[in-house]
Design a protein around this nucleic acid. Structure first.
Lengths: 102, 102
DNA sequence: GGGAAGGTACGATGCAAGTAGAACCTGAGC
DNA sequence: GCTCAGGTTCTACTTGCATCGTACCTTCCC
């Protein structure tokens, strides 16, 4: 069962949901950007400077979070996102490599 | 350049376009079904018995064809589709394995 | 030639999803 | 206390996409 923040466990991750999350160019770009950073990089939503409003940015991060791509970490007055690299590599081996090679 | 039937070469295949093609449950199901059949299996559109109209079925096969997932082969009065397994494995290694494991 | 089968192309429709604005929340800092 | 920054949620709008019906094409067979 997903936790209070809607993070699925690796076993709960659904390939179709993940593919749908990655099908959007903005979300794909965020994941691709994460893959160019250190593996443990934590980034705020604002870091990616998506060309959309704040609420739309929040919506996209929610989709990625609920698909299992990223994990949101509460830091008090701000939140950071981190790519769930290890869990994704285990659950969907090769998927992140495809994005990184793109 | 794609040929007259809109088949991209492996180099022209775009990961985002492929992911978008796979994000639809009907199209995902067709590819998953292909992966359960012999590698050289040729199938008509009607074979998959999608729960949609003939024109919608044709639309979905067009999306998969233009993404590079399948190749349409003209047999005169009928056409068959074949999964571009080898080319996809080469261009996006691991992708079909993820679908097959789902 | 005529009809049936298998696909494609076009136009129209309906719903899902991306988008934005406003209100709200929380914690940091003055 | 107040303000600001960063995110979330809600509602509403708008775009995109799946869907369908119709018309059309090609080949096979009678």
């Amino acid at each position: 069962m997903p936790d209070d923040d809607g993070h699925p466990t690796p076993a709960e991750m659904d390939l179709r949901t993940v593919l749908h999350a990655l099908a959007d160019p903005l979300r794909f770009g965020v994941i691709a950007q994460f893959l160019r950073e250190p593996a443990d990089a934590e980034r705020t939503c604002a870091y990616f400077e998506l060309p959309v409003s704040k609420s739309t940015t929040s919506h996209h991060f929610k989709v990625m979070r609920e698909a299992g791509l990223i994990r949101m970490i509460d830091h008090g007055n701000s939140r950071t996102a981190i790519l769930r690299r290890g869990e994704l590599d285990e659950r969907f081996p090769g998927l992140l490599d495809l994005i990184a090679a793109d």
